[in-house]
Amino acid sequence: MNTQDAAIPSLDSDLADGAITPIDRPTLHSVVVSRLRDMIIEGVLLPGTRINEGQLGQQLGVSRTPLREALKVLAMEGLVELVPGRGAMVCVLTAKDVRDMLEVLSSLEHLAGTLTCQNASDAQIGAVRTLHDEMLAFYRSGDRLQYFKKNQQIHSALIVLAGNASLAMVHDILQSKMRRIRYLGDQNDDTWSGAVADHEEMIAALEARDGPRLSAALVDHLTRTWDRVKDAI
């Protein structure tokens, strides 16, 4: 073996050491789940709509098997209801449902604000800042759906960094069910800019490691979320 060959690490060794990670290729299943989720969030599939599997599968160019598997995932997320004998329907949330979930989310995020400022590393806070900056780029370009997705990643990250698995589990369930409603909160320029201002305060509090300030910012944000969406429910 020459010196050049010796300088090249073995691929088998790298895999064994975990130095090389497999390329993440999206499966048909994950693509269908993501597409259907976006259709519900954006209102292409409206609340109360019965999903015609044959017609929808034809529109998406997929068979019923991956479509049904995707609907099962969305049912677990609370976006779709599987009704025996009737198939799948997009879930409907009443005003009371939304108020109740926002109240619980407020309590969870209030707790998370303090814990996250205590437990997050500098690198983790920097990663949230990166998500925030990416979100602002989508805001400036007017891409509401990609902005919303990044927005939700930020909220999830703040919860995960609190370091409480039970808190994260309950928050994830409610946040999933609220996706369509929260997306409605950014449908005009005034409410959208207000939500961005809320996030600016949240990231400032996080970077200052000011737990009470972050908790207050998260709760205020959710309180204003109700004001933004109540007329659309």
Results as ranks from 00 to 15, higher is better:
1 M>T: 13
5 D>E: 13
5 D>V: 11
7 A>N: 00
14 D>R: 15
15 L>A: 09
18 G>A: 09
20 I>W: 06
21 T>C: 08
27 T>R: 06
28 L>R: 10
30 S>H: 06
32 V>L: 04
32 V>G: 03
41 I>A: 01
44 V>Y: 09
45 L>S: 04
46 L>G: 00
47 P>R: 08
62 V>G: 01
64 R>K: 15
67 L>S: 06
72 K>H: 13
74 L>F: 01
78 G>E: 02
79 L>M: 11
81 E>T: 15
83 V>Y: 00
96 K>S: 14
101 M>R: 15
102 L>F: 06
108 L>A: 02
114 T>P: 00
114 T>G: 04
115 L>Q: 10
119 N>G: 10
121 S>M: 06
121 S>Q: 09
132 H>M: 07
137 A>T: 08
140 R>S: 06
141 S>Q: 08
142 G>H: 01
143 D>I: 07
143 D>R: 02
145 L>K: 03
149 K>P: 00
150 K>A: 12
150 K>E: 05
151 N>V: 04
154 I>D: 01
155 H>G: 06
156 S>L: 14
157 A>N: 04
157 A>P: 03
157 A>T: 09
160 V>T: 11
162 A>L: 05
169 M>R: 15
170 V>Y: 00
171 H>A: 13
173 I>K: 13
176 S>D: 12
176 S>C: 12
180 R>Y: 08
181 I>K: 03
190 D>H: 13
191 T>G: 00
201 E>H: 13
202 M>R: 07
203 I>K: 01
206 L>K: 03
211 G>L: 05
212 P>K: 04
213 R>I: 05
221 H>D: 07
222 L>E: 02
226 W>P: 05
228 R>S: 09
229 V>S: 05
232 A>M: 14
